[in-house]
Design a protein around this nucleic acid. Structure first.
Length: 426
DNA sequence: TCTGGGGTCCTAGGACCC
DNA sequence: TCTGGGGTCCTAGGACCC
């Protein structure tokens, strides 16, 4: 009896300039023109079309610093519209699942697919097919890298980004060293700023050099994660595909303010509003939280006003997802860290130690609990039907002077999105 | 004047116990 | 009052990702 062992084949599908591509879908005039999308509060540039990249606009650059280039070159600017991007992301992911239902959704615009079951010599064509189908069904262009490990598929993807076909496979190549040699160490997945500094100090400048370093040295002078990265560069898979969507462990809601906030009342409104938001989010995922952290800070870029940053964590006696309890805890935390005389730039809440609300470890659930739960459910239903914050708490404020800046919104909302004609292919 | 938001994992060090 | 070694558990902070 004989059987052929199939080479492990992992594809990384990455949407090109995702947010820009989403905006372009609804505005074809934007094609072939420089376009950027801004972060919340119109703060930084977080998505750039190739034309914008070519103008030298950097990822993460503050908007005001790039304004000159933007004006001069008539770059189209958009505030981010996350509900739109979320909807399109779900479409892309649904399409990918046709090729293998077990995919790892790695971020809003990226997914890993196991393509091991396809023959080695057809793998590049499979990649091209995936790319075409996604483009046809969703209108979103992608780049696809295929290799034996996740880290190598990232490398392949990196190269694919610059290729016309948009697909690069490293499967079946005898020696990939010449390729790895051209990959700068800071472009390797898992190597950030600090590690780059450290590797440079030790004479490691590209992926090939890291690959050839001994594991013991890496583990000893760095950590296990780094040695895993090196192993993966050698083609030995150490990082598994996470295809089961596991429940999250924390939930953050934080925002920079549209303008600086100085008085307690407004800060309180903001924190209450973020807490409501976070409570709603965890309820929608059937989670309860054991503790909440509230934090505030002033701008780290304006030292002349004095920098202040602080946080307070409060544990709940019984894990909860009740908005009222969570808002109350957040406000009392805020009271303990608020200091007069600062110009606050940002605040937020973090719900941590989340666990499944269905298997409550503590059996204190009572009739009171049931009443509150049904109140929360009806708030959630109303808000779902009539729009977020139809029902809110008074403490979250009405005027919201601190709200974000969004001066360049394309104003395409989810409701509009669903009213567009869709073509069902099946 | 104007600098995003939301996650995960690892590790060092402290607290506590025997 | 001083003296030891070793184990576990937890947490804050750092580093990384998109």
């Amino acid at each position: 009896m004989s059987f052929t062992q199939l080479t492990k084949k992992i594809a990384l599908v990455d949407c090109n300039s995702f947010y820009v591509s989403c905006e372009r879908l609804f505005n074809p005039k934007l094609r072939n023109k420089p376009v950027v999308v801004l972060s919340n509060n119109d703060g930084c540039i977080i998505s750039r079309s190739v034309e914008a990249k070519a103008l030298g606009i950097k990822m993460g650059e503050p908007y005001f610093k790039a304004k000159n280039i933007i004006m001069k070159n008539n770059v189209q600017v958009f505030s981010s519209n996350y509900s739109l991007y979320g909807d399109l992301s779900r479409r892309v992911m649904r399409t990918l699942k046709r090729f293998n239902s077990e995919i790892e959704i790695y971020s809003i615009d990226e997914a890993f697919l196991d393509l091991t079951n396809f023959p080695d010599n057809e793998i590049e064509d499979v990649g091209k097919e995936i790319r075409n189908v996604v483009l046809q069904w969703t209108g979103i262009p992608t780049s696809i890298g295929i290799a034996k490990t996740k880290t190598l598929s990232k490398v392949a993807n990196h190269i694919a980004k610059k290729k016309q076909s948009g697909v690069v496979s490293l499967i079946g190549l005898e020696n990939i060293d010449p390729i790895l040699e051209k990959v700068e160490i800071n472009d390797v997945w898992g190597v950030g700023r600090q590690l780059t500094k450290f590797y440079h100090k030790n004479g490691i400048y590209n992926a090939k050099q890291l690959k050839n370093k001994s594991n013991t040295w890496i583990k000893k002078s760095s950590n296990v994660l780094s040695s895993r990265t090196a192993m993966e560069l050698r083609g030995i898979s150490c990082i598994n595909l996470e295809t089961k969507s596991s429940k999250r462990k924390s939930c953050v809601v934080s925002r920079s303010f549209g303008k600086r906030v100085e008085n307690f009342q407004e800060l309180k409104e903001a924190v209450a509003s973020y807490s409501l938001n976070a409570s709603e989010k965890i309820r929608s995922e059937s989670l309860i939280t054991k503790s909440i952290t509230v934090f505030v800070r002033t701008s780290p870029f304006q030292s002349r006003y004095g920098f202040y940053s602080n946080s307070k964590t409060i544990d709940f006696p019984i894990a909860t997802n009740n908005s009222i309890e969570i808002v109350k805890a957040a406000i009392s935390g805020l009271e303990s860290i608020f200091k007069n005389g600062y110009r606050y730039q940002k605040a937020g809440v973090i719900l941590s130690h989340l666990c499944d609300s269905n298997n409550k470890e503590n059996l204190f659930s009572s009739i009171r609990d049931e009443k509150i739960n049904s109140l929360m459910r009806s708030i959630d239903n109303t808000n779902y039907r009539y729009g977020r914050s139809t029902l809110s708490l008074a403490s979250a404020g009405v005027h919201k002077k601190w709200n974000m800046k969004r001066q360049h919104s394309s104003k395409i909302d989810t409701a509009d999105f669903y009213s567009l004609p869709t073509i069902k292919v099946n």
